[in-house]
């Protein structure tokens, strides 16, 4: 009997979540690249919130492990992240956008949100030049896109754009048996 199976028999299931903030969802795609290991993972975890694995719309309480993809770019991202932090034991910054703010943060070079919106919706618009404004529907942009750890404390950093399925597995697998993954070396922490 391998250790994983043994752990499953002796311990209750881990409440597992993934969230998607400002990112391309590539990290989630890479997560799906885990292929058959996903089935094994499902034996050890309950997926309680995830854009690719669960239909719940509200982030539940008492989550054990959460992968957070994406930077913090708008008010919705911020609100969800604060909730995630308060309800989660181990928060993993999942991919370069979460760890460095990465591509979404390229807009930071232009200055504040107003300048970005002006550029995108007025200056570069082909027709229908109009700033988006739909309170409650379209979330307001934050002035700067931030990596997750600039907003809340993060427990594990998993860089990569996206992190490969192997890296994701190497990060999650030890957690299932109560061990902290070793985030070292090219295979685990190379950016990009």
């Amino acid at each position: 009997m391998d250790t994983l199976t043994q752990a499953t028999l002796t311990q209750p299931k881990i409440r597992f979540a993934t969230v998607w903030l400002a990112g391309c969802s590539g990290c989630h795609m890479s997560f799906l690249d885990l292929d058959e290991w996903l089935i094994e993972l499902a034996q050890h975890v309950d997926v309680v919130y995830s854009p690719v694995g669960c239909d719940l719309k509200e982030y539940p309480k008492n989550v054990d492990v959460c992968l957070v993809e994406g930077g913090v770019a708008n008010e919705d991202n911020l609100e969800l992240l604060l909730q995630v932090r308060q309800r989660t034991k181990i928060l993993i910054s999942f991919g370069d956008c979460a760890v460095t703010a990465n591509i979404p943060a390229m807009r930071n070079l232009m200055g504040g949100a107003d300048l970005v919106l002006k550029r995108g919706y007025l200056e570069l618009a082909d027709d229908t030049r109009k700033l988006p404004h739909a309170p409650g529907i379209v979330p307001e942009l934050l002035d700067r896109v931030m990596p997750v750890h600039e907003v809340v404390p993060v427990d594990i950093f998993m860089p990569g754009c996206p992190p490969s399925a192997d890296r994701i597995k190497a990060t999650i697998e030890p957690l299932l048996t109560g061990h902290k993954p070793v985030m070292e070396g090219r295979s685990m922490i190379k950016f990009g």
Binding site: P12, K13, I14, D64, K89, I90, D155, G178
Partner: peptide, 10 residues
């Protein structure tokens, strides 16, 4: 559910 391992981890 829940797990006893996570706090130990932290």
């Amino acid at each position: 559910h829940g797990t006893a391992t996570a706090p130990e981890l932290l």
